[in-house]
Design a protein around this nucleic acid. Structure first.
Lengths: 213, 213
DNA sequence: CCATGTGAAGGTATTCACAGCC
DNA sequence: GGCTGTGAATACCTTCACATGG
């Protein structure tokens, strides 16, 4: 293996592989070939091998990959071994669902704090996390939390992010349907759910619809 | 303008442009330049012009784009003018949040039906939509609904999708963290929220973490 | 003999620079 | 002068084919 910059598209796929490895590990497997993993996650085998080749030699020719070792390697590459604590801002319908969502655990991620501006919500506990006053986001600085999830209405998103950045947050998963302006050192991934649904019709077969022409 | 296949990446960006156009329209603007739109949505101006050039001549040199006309053109390209009704399967925390989510309206999309397997939920009404028995998904065939949103646990996702496909659904937005097997004519977009959060640390500056090395 | 890792080829998307039109 | 639309250049990613190693 030689030095390579890891392509963004590879980084996008790594969590998929991790998910597939967990499933195989649960089934008691110790090793897995790129082909088997490919079948279970829906990515081509050569793509998996190429992706993994960017950051380490994990496989054994003739045998495959040691699941435990490969999972550790991927986690390290994604820096999931060091960063594990996240804060949620905005405990509305979507925010509450995220607090209850068990899926983060698979990647070793935990939501350990939550903020909201609504006085009726402050002080309540949802899924073991107490909702704090959004005006106190500054207190995050002392709490070793560098990941934030933003689930507030569009109008509030930018100001919340400004405060999060001031409080030392380094990465943001944004559910508000808008662009967020942040310093270059901060990474924002925006996930606009309605937008994903909106691009689905483009790929659907062009049959005449009964409603409207 | 000449014939071009529209790149997938362009299709991914079109809803962003649509969102930006709505905002400008709300502000009373009639025309907008690629540069202004670029500033408001966070995509480069030449990228926008290139994307739009794949499917129509919308702009006027020296003036810019007519917002109303461009929005209609994008909607038509994405086929949002014909497909508007969606069904939700799985009314848990996330599903309920999606039912309440106002963002789909912006794209002319409506969730008009909901299914769940839990007898305690069946018959209840959430946000004006009555929850029906998941065993009755087959009744969709008569209801002119071709889009589905799947928000059930991983273990139930594949069988729900099988039923949806049998009932005539053509496109699926899947929130379950797994690959779904469907006939080639069906389009599935999987949106794994935990996975998005998991790739965030990779892009964050490599400072020493206080917790664990 | 089987499965990995990787150069090389091929394809797709981004970026540039500018001709053409209002 | 200002702004669009687009060929050409560049960068990036995917796919292939096979040498290499257990």
């Amino acid at each position: 293996m030689r030095y390579h910059k890891i392509p963004d598209e590879t980084v996008r796929r790594l969590p998929i592989y991790l998910r597939g490895l967990m499933v195989s590990a649960d089934q008691g497997c110790e090793h897995i070939s790129s082909q088997s993993l490919a079948d279970s996650v829906g990515v081509d085998a050569w793509q998996i091998r190429k992706d993994l080749s960017y950051f380490g030699d994990f496989g054994t020719p003739g045998v495959g990959y040691n699941i435990e070792k490969l999972a550790r390697g991927i986690k390290k590459t994604l820096r999931l071994d060091a960063i594990r604590r996240a804060v949620l801002v905005g405990v509305g319908d979507l925010g509450s669902a995220l607090l209850a969502y068990p899926g983060f655990r698979m990647y070793g991620l935990d939501i350990v704090a939550a903020f909201d501006a609504d006085p009726k919500k402050i002080g309540k506990t949802v899924n073991g996390v107490e909702i704090e006053d959004a005006a106190k986001i500054g207190t995050l600085r002392q709490r070793d939390i560098s990941l934030a999830i933003v689930a507030v209405p569009r109008a509030a998103a930018q100001s919340m992010v400004d405060e999060l950045v001031a409080a030392g947050v380094k990465g943001v998963l944004n559910f508000a349907p808008c662009k967020l302006v942040v310093p270059k050192r901060i990474k924002v991934i925006t996930l606009d759910i309605a937008m994903e649904l909106a691009r689905l019709p483009y790929y659907m077969p062009r049959v005449e619809q009964m409603s409207e022409t």
